[in-house]
């Protein structure tokens, strides 16, 4: 994992914890954990997450990229962000 990816993951994780998991601070979040599947966030919250990613990382997300796979886990999101900025 590159330094960049690590810090991207850290930024996303911090947002998720603060916005969605504030009442569950002991939740373990590994980079590959499937967040929706594990019911840590719901679909409405996922949309807020996508909005955050766009704003925080200055992304223009094409509709063809609005698929669950790109936002399934911290890893997936970091990879997506890196690809978009690359």
């Amino acid at each position: 994992m590159t330094q960049d990816t690590e810090s991207t993951i850290a930024i996303i994780e911090a947002f998720i914890r603060e916005r969605f998991l504030y009442d569950r601070p002991d939740t373990v979040l590994t980079p590959d954990l499937p967040l929706m599947e594990q019911r840590l966030i719901d679909s409405l919250q996922l949309m807020q997450l996508v909005q955050f990613l766009q704003e925080r990382f200055g992304l223009q997300i094409d509709i063809m990229d609005l698929v669950f796979e790109n936002f399934a886990s911290l890893d997936a999101m970091a990879a997506f962000v890196t690809k978009q900025k690359g």
């Binding site: 409405l44 949309m47 996508v50 766009q54 997300i61 509709i63 609005l66 669950f68």
Partner: peptide, 13 residues
Amino acid sequence: EHPFAFSVCVHNK
């Protein structure tokens, strides 16, 4: 058919 993409577009994009 594409509820996720649809939601993001309706709320945001």
